[in-house]
Simulated scan of single mutants.
Amino acid sequence: MEANRLINYLFLFGWLYIGIAQENNTEAFRYKLDYSIPESPAFAVLDANPTTVLRATAAQEVITQLATNFISGNNVSPGLAIDFNPYFNFGGRLQNIEEYRTKYWSRFLANLQLSLATINATDFPDDMLFSGGLRMTLWDSKDILYNKALGESIDRELLPKEDPGPHHHDPGTIVENNALKIAYEKAKKAYRQQKGGALSIGYAVAGRARNNAFKTDSIITYRHQAWISGQYDFGKNGISINSMLMYRYQHGNLSNSDGVIGGIALRKYGEKLIISSEIYHNGQTESINFGAYAEAYLIPNITLFASLKKEVNAITGEEEVLFKPGIKWNLSESKK
């Protein structure tokens, strides 16, 4: 199977999940906001995410990400990732939001994030890299389904202001109205100004299709990693601190290596823009790296992002400066 065929399959796979998500829409997930979307676990193991320190916040139903790494020396590495919640997209149900708040395992299943990705990487110019990952949110006090006070404040903004009557929409559902855009902005403000913390864990594996051929004897795995992320949002000042500890094991051509990657990120949440900076230590390269990041919310469901990073390449050992622009498309719920 050729490499470009894999990309086509990933696109088809993504659209299939979009259809499933729309047909099996769960009322509880109508309250998800397209704001502060977690990074892709599959992109993380490929070093394709714009940031290294991963967020710990609750997952979304379906997210697609397109990213491009512009590496010093004018090398380019384009990639595609698809993240989705398998529980809801394969027909999982919650009786009501109260079940989500009171039953831990229901909330755990609702926040699983399965991730698939592929990328053309300059480290292996003749190969196609692909990956898969799983992320689990153990706790997020700012999850608007879990946090009753925050959920109620957002309900007041998103639900109809007037009773639509018995022959119209159920008053417990969101309806389209001219004030919906403003309501979402107020809902995001309520989210930003809420104090709270989150904790998540994840695992991902990356493989290589040598010479872009997806055959049994051409596919090898070359990297595994597992991590834990935690964060705390300070509330009205819009500041968040995020920490991550990751263990990575890598197969090399001549020898294998492993190491711990740990770092801290500071974020500033704005109405249309989130900016952050991070510093982290890579135990594989014994280097301290840093970067700056921004993500913009200018169009509903669409997030534009870019980062500038300095890091040491774990394979070549060379210091690189990377510019990573990209786009996230939140397909969890249409916001009109």
Score class of each variant (00 low, 15 high):
A3W: 13
R5H: 12
I7C: 00
F11S: 04
F13P: 03
G14M: 03
W15T: 15
I18T: 08
I18R: 14
E23R: 11
E23Q: 12
A28V: 08
F29Y: 09
R30Q: 13
Y31P: 00
Y31F: 15
Y31M: 10
K32L: 14
D34S: 15
Y35K: 09
P38E: 11
F43I: 01
A44V: 00
A48Q: 15
N49H: 04
R55T: 14
A59R: 08
A59D: 09
E61V: 13
Q65L: 04
L66Y: 11
N74S: 15
L80E: 05
F84Q: 08
P86E: 09
P86V: 11
Y87G: 08
F88N: 01
L94R: 07
I97W: 01
E99I: 03
T102F: 00
W105Y: 12
L109Y: 06
N111P: 03
L112G: 03
L116C: 02
A117N: 04
I119D: 02
A121W: 00
A121E: 10
T122M: 05
D123N: 13
F124H: 13
P125Q: 11
D126G: 02
D127P: 02
G133T: 10
L134H: 04
R135N: 13
R135P: 00
M136Y: 01
T137N: 15
T137W: 02
L138P: 03
W139D: 09
D140K: 06
S141T: 12
S141F: 04
A149D: 12
L150Y: 05
G151N: 06
G151D: 07
S153E: 15
I154P: 03
K161I: 01
D163H: 06
G165D: 09
G172W: 00
V175G: 02
V175T: 14
N177H: 12
K181I: 03
I182G: 04
A183E: 08
A183R: 03
Y184C: 05
Y184A: 08
A187Y: 10
Y191S: 01
Y191G: 00
Y191C: 02
Y191L: 10
R192G: 02
K195S: 05
K195C: 00
G196E: 07
G197C: 01
G197T: 05
A209G: 11
N211F: 11
N212A: 12
N212L: 10
T216Y: 13
I219T: 08
T221Y: 13
Y222R: 10
Q225M: 14
W227Y: 14
W227I: 02
S229A: 15
F234W: 11
K236L: 09
I239P: 00
M246Q: 15
M246S: 12
N253P: 00
S255W: 07
V260T: 14
V260H: 04
I264L: 15
Y269L: 15
K272N: 12
Y280N: 04
H281S: 13
H281C: 01
G283E: 08
I288S: 11
Y293M: 04
Y297I: 03
L298D: 05
L298K: 02
I299P: 01
P300T: 10
N301R: 12
F305A: 06
A306D: 03
S307Q: 07
N313C: 05
T316S: 15
T316K: 09
V321K: 09
V321W: 10
P325Y: 11
N330W: 07
E333V: 08
E333Q: 14
S334R: 09
K335H: 14
